[in-house]
Simulated scan of single mutants.
Amino acid sequence: MRIAPGRLVYLGYGKYVRSDRIVALLPIEEERGPGRRTLVYVEGLPEPVVAGRTEATIVRDMVGPEGGAVELLRELQAQIKQVRPLLKASIRSEAGLDLDELSRRISNLTGEGEHEGDASDRLL
């Protein structure tokens, strides 16, 4: 993912920071609650800013429009995993569309390891 420079990122409760000034995001694990989700380390500030949004939401806003494409790919991959092996084989045979290969390619593009499916997913 590439950070969209100069973009204002909303941290919650009226706080905004420029996307290219954020150097680290750490989820708050203790005393987490409304208004306390993530510690945002900002270049030039001695202490982290407490954000009311999750680190994933902040990252999505930092990367800009292409972040939506990644989310769409993840959603597509989740849907592919719902397709039963026999139907996947039929789609591959009839339409030439290999859903398992498509899922692997999505994993490569998003930089995430594909979650292990059950053994029946790999049989067909």
Rank of each mutant, 00 (worst) to 15 (best):
E94N: 04
V63Y: 08
G12C: 02
D121A: 11
L97P: 09
E116R: 00
R36V: 06
E29Y: 01
I28L: 07
V49I: 07
A4H: 15
E29N: 02
V70M: 12
E101S: 08
P85A: 02
V70N: 09
V59D: 10
I106G: 12
G113I: 08
S103F: 06
A69I: 06
D20Y: 03
E112P: 01
T54V: 09
A51H: 05
G113H: 13
K81M: 14
D100W: 08
E116V: 04
E43L: 03
V83A: 03
G113S: 11
R74Y: 09
E94I: 03
K15A: 10
L45P: 03
I106H: 09
L72T: 06
P46C: 07
T54M: 09
L76F: 09
Y16V: 00
D100Q: 12
A119K: 04
I58T: 05
R2H: 13
L45H: 03
L99G: 11
E31C: 02
R105A: 15
K81H: 14
G64M: 13
I22F: 01
A119P: 11
E94L: 06
A78C: 02
G113T: 11
L109H: 10
P65C: 07
L102D: 09
G33S: 01
D100I: 08
T54R: 10
V9R: 01
V50E: 06
K88T: 14
E31V: 01
A95Q: 08
R32I: 01
G117R: 08
S107D: 04
T57A: 06
R105S: 15
L124E: 10
V23P: 02
R21M: 06
L26Q: 05
E43A: 02
L45S: 03
D20Q: 02
V40D: 05
R7D: 14
G96N: 10
G14C: 00
A69P: 05
E31L: 03
V50Q: 05
V70G: 11
S93G: 12
S103T: 04
G6P: 11
A56T: 10
R92E: 14
R7H: 10
V9W: 00
A69N: 04
R7N: 13
E31H: 05
V23D: 04
A119V: 12
A89T: 09
R104H: 11
R21P: 00
Y41T: 01
A89F: 13
S103D: 12
L123F: 15
T57L: 05
S107G: 06
G64R: 10
S90N: 14
R104N: 15
D98G: 01
P34H: 01
I91N: 03
R74M: 13
L8N: 08
G96C: 15
E114H: 09
A24Q: 03
V23L: 09
L72I: 08
V9P: 01
Y41S: 02
E66N: 08
Q77P: 12
V59C: 09
I3P: 07
V70S: 11
G67D: 02
E71A: 03
G96P: 13
L109W: 13
E116G: 03
R21L: 08
V40F: 04
A69K: 04
E112Y: 00
V40M: 04
L73Y: 02
I28A: 00
L124R: 14
L99F: 13
P5N: 12
E101Y: 07
G12T: 05
G111H: 07
A95W: 09
Q77S: 12
L109Q: 12
P34N: 03
P46H: 06
K81R: 13
G111L: 13
